[in-house]
Design a binder for these strands. Structure first.
Lengths: 258, 258
DNA sequence: TGATGCACAATCATCATATGAATTCGGGGG
DNA sequence: CCCCCGAATTCATATGATGATTGTGCATCA
């Protein structure tokens, strides 16, 4: 029934059946992206819904299967759609955490000249997150964070700390706080900004300087503030912690390139 | 059907091309995306460089032209690549402002339940941006911001304020501040978060309440603080301004749908 | 009657080829 | 020296065919 929109475009037709649709962005793929986006915004497609078959959707949007697939794939990469072979294509939950996740992708592409600016933003967000978390963090989250710090401690007292484990614990610790902020958008952004690559560079600088223990101590201080539900202490300690990390980043530019 | 060219990859034989063992990614398109990303990260492809022709690149990655195009298009949408018909495909400047821009796309997809969280994050970022801007804003930027406020003033004193113009000026004003922060990542994020759609909703609520003038007054106060290079005043006034806007958003949920 | 295994159908994934459109670059003419 | 035009290059799109995967319904068996 969607044939209504299907423009009778013949192969030899100018294909210019109006800048109307095409003008959306020029290429046919943009028509697809904008079209699907529009369908989602106006409610024709809701989270979890299934899209028409490739053939039908391509026909409805007036494009061929190639461009349609390109557009769908692009939206897929951005976390808006999800295709399951043999089943169909579905609209995701459109959750901020899903939609902002791909941003971590571009973060990896930043050379370390932009890494500084990037980290400054991360600091602002995490600082606020810590303050928010202090007022509403749950007992479970506190326990989880404590467990993470204990494990890191064990790792540090051991002879040769497992670098990967340290990074993982660090990421997990900050993630607990971000999520305890109660703001999913904030948490998603922090997650994206504190990508694995970035974290990797940071910890290399820190370890190189033998500051693992100092960093761990700062973590402990932050957790204490959270446990005491003290927003001011949490905010300032998180800020101090991240400023310190920034200093490592500045004083010890990580590897020439990677 | 004899598929004349007798492709080296038999239907049942995966014909593992070997080095494209990147199959780990799953789909062929992921192979393309990861492959190109890798080429960029390890420096084989640098900003401004031109990619090989579709045919060659497809061959190099071990995929057909279809999936290759899907991957390239996906990266294109994310601001990493740029294809020019008749010319070739190039790597963009990989500037944060370009790479973070697509995020504005997903922001539009947020229903207004997430709009609140979204705006809270925007407030945090803009508040810090204002503080930073106060210490380093240039005379030109100050003049530009002043000009914007004057124009808004003129619009308000007129009988029927042009709604679109008000929004445009508002966006421009905040943009000047964000860019004056000197942190391109911060500016790009603010730009993406304060998308047109979001701003549209906000101003509808504000105008509906007849608070246009009050909002304008707050803008003026922020500019004064910037002109005086007073970070504290700038920070607090920006925060107050955005908290106020948030209140409008909360008390007057914009239309259920648009 | 309930559970299990299997064949079938629907759908996406990929490949291959052909044709159109836009841009760039070089040559020829003024 | 400049302008115009055509060829070559490259991406954009269309189309058809085939493989792979998933979901479903039915038949069979305990």
């Amino acid at each position: 029934m969607t044939a209504g929109v299907g423009p009778p475009r013949g192969p030899s037709a100018p294909a210019d059946d109006g800048r109307t649709a095409a003008r959306g962005g020029g290429s046919q793929t943009d028509v697809v992206v904008q079209g699907i986006k529009k369908l989602i915004i106006d409610g024709s497609l809701r989270p979890g819904d299934r899209l028409p078959v490739e053939k039908d959707l391509a026909d409805a949007l007036g494009v061929s299967r190639g461009p349609l697939r390109e557009g769908v794939r692009a939206l897929s990469m951005m976390g808006v759609l999800e295709t399951r072979q043999g089943d169909g294509t579905y609209v995701t939950a459109l959750d901020p955490s899903l939609l902002l996740a791909p941003m971590g992708f571009v973060v990896d592409l930043q050379d370390h000249s932009g890494a500084h600016d990037l980290h400054a933003v991360r600091r602002m967000l995490e600082t606020e997150a810590a303050a928010l978390a202090a007022t509403r963090i749950s007992a479970e989250a506190l326990a989880a964070a404590d467990e993470l710090l204990r494990r890191t401690e064990a790792e540090l007292t051991a002879g040769v700390p497992d670098h990967e484990a340290l990074i993982d614990n660090d990421i997990a610790f900050h993630r607990v706080i971000a999520q305890a902020s109660g703001n999913p958008v904030l948490a998603a952004l922090i997650e994206a900004l504190g990508g694995r690559t970035t974290r990797d560079r940071l910890w290399r600088s820190i370890s190189q300087d033998g500051a693992d223990e100092a960093t761990h101590g700062e973590h402990r201080g932050i957790l204490d503030a959270l446990a005491g539900h003290d927003p001011d202490r949490a905010r300032v300690r998180m800020a101090a912690h991240l400023f310190g990390v920034e200093d490592y980043l500045r004083e010890r530019p990580p590897g020439p390139d990677l």
